[in-house]
Structures are given as C-alpha cells and as structure tokens.
Design a protein around this nucleic acid. Sequence first.
DNA 1: CGATGCATGTAAGCTGTTACATGATTGC
DNA 2: GCAATCATGTAACAGCTTACATGCATCG
Lengths: 181, 181
Amino acid sequence: MRKLSELEGVAVGIISKRQPCTAYALRMELKASPSSHWRASAGAIYPLLSRLEDEGLIRSTDDSSDGRGRRPLSITREGKKALKAWIKEIANPTLLSEIFDPLRSRMFFLGALAHKEQIALAERVLTDLALHLENSRQYVRQNPVSDDFFEHLGAVGGVINAESRIKYLKTVLTQIREQQT
Amino acid sequence: MRKLSELEGVAVGIISKRQPCTAYALRMELKASPSSHWRASAGAIYPLLSRLEDEGLIRSTDDSSDGRGRRPLSITREGKKALKAWIKEIANPTLLSEIFDPLRSRMFFLGALAHKEQIALAERVLTDLALHLENSRQYVRQNPVSDDFFEHLGAVGGVINAESRIKYLKTVLTQIREQQT
DNA sequence: CGATGCATGTAAGCTGTTACATGATTGC
DNA sequence: GCAATCATGTAACAGCTTACATGCATCG
C-alpha cells in the first residue's frame, strides 16, 4: 500500500469524518481551516481524488438525478487502512522536524535591516500575530470538545502555536532593543 | 523588482552573510539547519542561482585556476534590496498563517485509531520531540549570541517551537487519557 | 433575469525532488 | 591507488498554483 502524501492524508481524513462529502465541501473545509498551508485549489484536489478513487481508497456515488453533478465521496476499508498508516507515520523524526516557519527563517537575516527597521517590523508583526491568535481562539470556540474531541485538539494546537510565536517575537524584540548599544 | 520565493530569500540571505560563498556551501548550510524543510537538492539550488544571477541579484566570480570549478557567489546592491524586501514581506498576515505542522494536522484525525493506539503513538512521538528539542538546544549552543546575534535568534526560535509542540502533545495525551470514560 | 454561489474539471507553468552524470581533491 | 567527499550540473518527474471553462441553482 502506497504512502499517502500530506494533502492526500488530510483529504482522506476529512472524507472519512464527513462522509458522504463532495469534493467541493472538502475544498471549503480546507480553505476554512485557520492554518491554510494549502489553497485547496481545484487543480490539486480533483486529480488527487481521481487518483484515490482509482486506487480504491475512496468511492464516489454518481447520482444522475443531481443536476449539479455532485459526486458524494465516502471512504473504503482500504482507505481507512491507508489513513491509519498515514497518521502513524508521524512517529518519524524527519517528518517531525519538517515544519517551516517563514517568520523564523527571516529572523536569521534580520540584520540586513537597519536597527530602527528591525524594531518597526517586529512590532508590526506582533500585532498581526495577536490577531492571528484571536482567530485561532475563535476557531477553538467554534470547535468545542463536546462537538468533536479531536477537532478540538487540532484547534487547540493552533492556539498553542500562535502563543509560542508571540512569545518568540517578544523575546526577539526585547533582545533587539538591548542590542542598541 | 520581483518578489523572492521562500527558498530564494533564504538563499540570498545566506549568500549575503557568508559571501563569498559557493553553491555547495549554501546547500550544506541548508542541510545542516535543524528544521530542514528543504532537502537543498542540487536540482533546486543550481537553477535558482542561475536565475538570481541572470536577474543581477547575485554575482559569481569565475576563477579558472580553481580545479574544482568552484564559483564563489556574492550579493549585489540589487540583491541586498531584494533581500530587505523579502524580509519585510513577513508583515503580511497570510504569510504568517502559512505554517504547516504534520503533527497537528494528524491530530484532527487521531480518532481513526483505537484508544490504545492513540496513546501509544502520542507517547512515541513525545520521546521523538524530546530528542528534537535537545537537537535544537545544541544548535543554539553552536550559535551563541557572541557569534552572530541574528543566527542565535533564529536558533532560539527552534527551541521555543519545539517546547511548544511538546507542551501541546502533553495536553493532548492527558486529554486522551481522560477520554477513556 | 441576472448576479452570486455551488460544483466539477482542465491546461499551462513553476518549483521542488530524485536520480544520475561528471570530474577534482583529500585522506588513508 | 582507491574511497569518500567536494563541487557542479542536468533530465525526468511529481505536485501544487493560477487561470480558465462549463453549467446548475438560488436569491433578490
């Protein structure tokens, strides 16, 4: 059984939770998620779903009576197996260290800016991050434990991450200010 | 002036710091960085550098006396401008929310596993994360403030991030255990 | 009855990966 | 002298984005 890519894993996971679920609904859910790494573009989703269907991981039921040509998707037994394998793949150190943060990668080169610019930029980003944190908190409120336990857990992860980035930028700011000497 | 992509920005940044710097040295530095989102593959780096040179952002000095055909790179005034613009781009909310964490994305679907499997996986990952944190701390030690202030800041970001992920997984674990009921 | 949103899909292009190719240098 | 590493580069391929195309449904 082939390994699922990140987007494939997420797609199969969403389908398994929301089934029956149309491709469009899947795209909208990806779009709505606060840390949207993917644009959930049609050009990515539709070929991906065809692939998954060809391999028997998902199944679509053609309903000719549906004028809009909706094709509700559901997961197969094979798909469920692949999903479980994908989840367990996280027990792989290389996957764990693969996160990439455009904020942090820029910190390495912040010295290219003048001291005043550094501070101005950091302050600006700090307010943006505060906004982002507020959004993440709202997402948690929209996904209470009572609703779906694991969705709640995922949402909480967003808040913790946002908080840690704010903490990080704050230490950066104070250290830059001290650097003035 | 064209916007730089993430990898381009990092490449120009490293060249600007390490100049004169060969393409190979650049790749090795990318590889050595603890959160290696990129494999720093030759097929990505060399075409990218040609592109940057064609656009006048970097300059290479051909030394025919160098048997290995090393071509030391340095940054141009245009390149410096582009680097500054790239750094300032972080003041863009969409860029800020673009981080993607394979751990968190799997949490949404952890319910697909049996309760025992959930706990076993989380415990396993927790030890992996502890190792990752130790690596990040060592990276900080290898990049003291005295050496390069901003590199130190970047390294510290890795530690803070690793800590926050551990904190996250711990809350996940305790909540899963409570869920047993 | 026209704008907006639902719903599917395709084509071109960019960027990255893997795998390969080539040759020089260093260390044992 | 041979293996490993340094150093550059290319070709085939994979995956995602943007932009486009098509048509149905709903709401004012």
